[in-house]
Structures are given as C-alpha cells and as structure tokens.
Amino acid sequence: MSIGTQPTGRLHVDVRRVGRIGALYVAEYRLRNMWKWKRAVITDGLGNPVLYLASIGLGVGSLVNASLGPQGLGGVPYLLFLAPALMAAAAMQGAMTEAMFPTLAGFLWDKGFFAMRSTALTGGQIADGVLIAAVCRVTFTTAVYWLVLRAFGAVEWASALTLIPVAVFAGACWGALMLAITAHAKNDDAIISIAMRLVIMPMFLFSGTFYPLSTLPISVQWIGWISPLWHATELGRWLSYGMPLPSWQVAVSFCYLVLMGSVGLLVARRRFEQRLTA
C-alpha cells in the first residue's frame, strides 16, 4: 500500500465546490460535534421550557390573570403573552452558546480553526459555518419549546408558523453579533461571564419579557429599546396573537435585528480571516 504515489485524490479535490459551499461543510462538522453532546442539548431544550412554563407561566400567570382580568394584557392569557418572549430568549441564548464556545475553542482551546483554514476553506466560510450550525441548533431548541408550549395548551397549532421563525431569526441575528465579539476575544476568562451577567441577565429582565415594557419606569425602559430581545418579542407578539403594533415600529424592530445580524456577520467574517492569517 502506498500513499504518495496515488495521485487520484488530487483529481477529486474540488476548489470551486469548496468555494461555493465550504460553509456547509463547516456547519456539518459543527453539527456532528454537537451531536456528541446530544443528551445535554435535548435536556436543555426540554428542561428550560418546562421549568419556565411551570414556574412563571403557570404560577405567576395565575396571579396576573387573576389581578388584571380579561383586559389586562390586551385580552390574552398570560402564557400566550409570555410565549414569544421566552422562545426568543431561549433562541438567543442557544445561538450565543453555539457561537461563543466553538469560536473560543477554534481560536484558543484546540485551535481547530487553524486546521480548517489550512484547507481550501477561508476564514469567512468558517464564520458562516459556525453560524449556520448555531441556527440549526436554535431551530431545534425553539421547535421543542413550541411543542412544550403546545403541550401546556398555551398556543394554537398555527402559531408554530410565526413563533418559531421569529425566534430563530432573533437567534440568528444575536448569534452573528456574538460571533463577531467572540472572534475578538484574546482570552477566555472574562468574556463568557461578562456576557452572561452583564448582558444576558439584564436583557432578559428588562425587555418586557414578563410584563409590557411600558410598565417599567421610563428611566430603565431604554434597556428594552436597545435590547434585541425586546424587538424580537414585540414582533413575536404582533405576529402570533395580533398585539397592536404601529407599522413603523414593526419596521424599526425588524431592521434593528437585521442590521445587528448583518453587521455582526460581516465583522465576524473579516475578523476570522484576519486572525487565521496573522
């Protein structure tokens, strides 16, 4: 058996194909890697909604429904009001995890991105592939979330067509931003805890997740306005149960997320390529 004298492999190498769909190969790799963690992914995917819906959805919900009466939250049951926010939050958190950890690993821990960049792939394709895989994971997570909501009787069948896409969209845009930020991380000790404590938690608490943003004093409402979660939640409520929303606000929320996602992805692509060739 010989290795070097068989030139057949050289004939199969397809640079143009990699140029076109290299990002999908990266995504395939990421999904295979995630599959090794399937138990954690599934436990997280199921546990998260069950816990939230059982505690806050049912517990707090019964208080809210009782005290506000039928007109309280625009005439919708609390779970229906909560669903778009929780799903968007779960999607964004999932996307963040799948953007940050592989990126820290690829650049710092096992340096796998450097191996990938020594093939026909480019840095930009690696960034794209990580994001594509994160979006796949998020699609799974939000679909599970929706099924749990459905099992709790919180949503109608048709809501799958609005709730899941909005949440996945929010996850993708947020994931792109996290990808760009993580690609700049020089070390791993601060970035994750900063992101979790100073960004994710305040965002989750002050984005009109559990009650309308207008309930909060005006002095902290700005946190909601800059929060992608709030924008995603507003869109989700508007689409899933017809919460009244002026069309300019629909446009602003949509554009805000698109802008965040596209700037994030462009910066991430550039930074990946730079960092892998420096």
């Binding site: 492999g9 397809d14 790799y29 191996a115």
Partner: peptide
C-alpha cells in the same frame, strides 16, 4: 499541512476527523 500542535477535534472519532477534513477539500 501537519501543524506543530495537534488540532484534531477531540470529541469526534478518528475516522470522523479524517472524513470531515477531507470534506474541506471538496472530496466526495
């Protein structure tokens, strides 16, 4: 390219690492 530091994916199997890497060259 064989880098100084081994950078195979430690979660994947030996064969999977070879397969995935082959994909990055567009190999069927």
């Amino acid at each position: 390219v064989v880098p100084q530091q081994d950078n195979n994916d430690t979660e994947l199997t030996v064969a999977e690492n070879l397969y995935i890497y082959g994909k990055y060259f567009g190999l069927p």
